[in-house]
Computed example of a mutant assay.
Amino acid sequence: MKFSEVVEKLSDATVEGSSLTTHENCNPQIQGVASVREATPGTLSYIEGGKYAEMVETTKASALILPLDEMLQERAIAREIAWISVSDPKWLFAQAVKLFYKPYLPQPGIHPTAVIDPTANIGKACSIGAHAVIEANVKIGDNVCIFPNVTIYPDVEIGDRAILHANCTIHERTRIGNDCTIQSNAAIGAEGFGFVPTSKGWIKMEQSGITILEDGVEIGCNSCVDRPPVGETRIGRNTKIDNLVQIGHGCQVGDGCMMSAQVGLAGRARIGDRVILAGQAGVSNDITIGDGAIASGKSGVTRDVPPGQTVSGFPAIAHRLWSKTSVLQMRLPEIYQAIKKLQKEKK
């Protein structure tokens, strides 16, 4: 489509309060989207800020989404490249991707090899793939997509428009809300790691609780959300969980959280709303992390984190303090030699 058509569609997609400026002297044909470094003629790309200004000169993209930066706009005009300017270029680029790419979803229907218990209740316009297994008393909403080899245990409830990708497993009594996405090989509602130490060894505690995913939750490939011995494990609305994440039994995760790959929550951790846990961050048993807090990559959170605080390191401490101690740590050999010298001088 022409750049002017792209602008029109993106104008409809802008969020309330955002400003949008266009440069309409150029109107190239746009055939797709690409990163600014890998862009080719006919593609649309974006630049987040002034530190990427040189990319305006070197990119092969036919059009750019720019921030509200006059310097970048002037460079684009001088180069005679089409552009659109908005307060959040990355967000708008995400909307542009949707114009050119639609994720694969099969047509509604039930594959003849699917095994569905007669007591299961399947909603309207669902797609159920080859060799999927849906056991007794399962309730599935409308427009749900279940890919091949998915296994759904008894008494599970799944809301409207959920997508369950190939080979994921939903264990008994799990509750999944509307518009949730479960990626391949994830396990939702499996037994938590519950064992009681005795003089005769470890005794298994049965995990009789349930797991609940609220509306809009997304779970990445090979991630696990365990059910507890009693009560519930709950993931709040619109929380997004990456691949290879472990959510232990009894955890309570708030709304709008983001967890990157290899994050691990031990049992009964309590995570507030809008919390960000970067890659490989770990949270100990019974820890509370307040609303809006951030744990940077590889942090080991062993004590409660107040709302809004950013922590780093192991054990995790306030990020600013961790930055100072990291600098000192790199100087330890130098400091050690200085101390040795002082000790010799005293003798």
Rank of each mutant, 00 (worst) to 15 (best):
I219Q: 08
C221S: 14
N222T: 10
N222Q: 12
N222H: 11
N222I: 01
V225L: 11
R227Q: 06
R227P: 05
P228T: 08
V230Y: 10
G231A: 04
G231P: 11
E232N: 08
E232H: 08
T233V: 08
I235S: 03
G236N: 09
N238R: 06
K240G: 09
I241R: 00
D242M: 00
V245P: 01
V245S: 03
Q246T: 00
I247P: 13
G250P: 00
G250C: 01
D255I: 14
G256E: 02
G256M: 02
C257V: 04
M258R: 05
M258N: 06
A261G: 15
A261C: 13
Q262A: 07
V263K: 00
G264M: 07
A266L: 10
R268F: 14
A269V: 10
R270H: 11
R270I: 11
I271T: 09
D273T: 13
D273Q: 15
V275W: 15
V275T: 15
I276W: 08
G279W: 01
G279N: 05
Q280L: 07
G282E: 00
S284V: 09
S284K: 09
S284C: 06
S284Y: 06
T288G: 00
T288V: 12
G290R: 05
G292F: 06
I294E: 03
A295V: 03
A295R: 00
S296Q: 09
S296K: 03
G297N: 01
G297Y: 00
K298M: 09
T302L: 13
T302Q: 09
D304K: 04
D304A: 07
V305K: 02
V305D: 02
P306D: 04
Q309W: 07
Q309R: 14
T310M: 14
T310Y: 06
T310L: 07
G313K: 07
G313R: 03
F314I: 06
A316V: 11
A316L: 10
I317D: 01
I317P: 03
A318K: 12
A318Q: 13
H319A: 11
R320C: 03
R320D: 14
R320I: 12
L321S: 14
L321E: 15
W322M: 12
S323R: 15
S323I: 08
K324I: 02
T325I: 13
S326G: 15
S326H: 13
S326R: 14
V327F: 08
L328M: 15
M330A: 10
M330H: 12
L332T: 08
E334D: 15
E334Y: 11
Y336V: 12
A338W: 11
A338D: 15
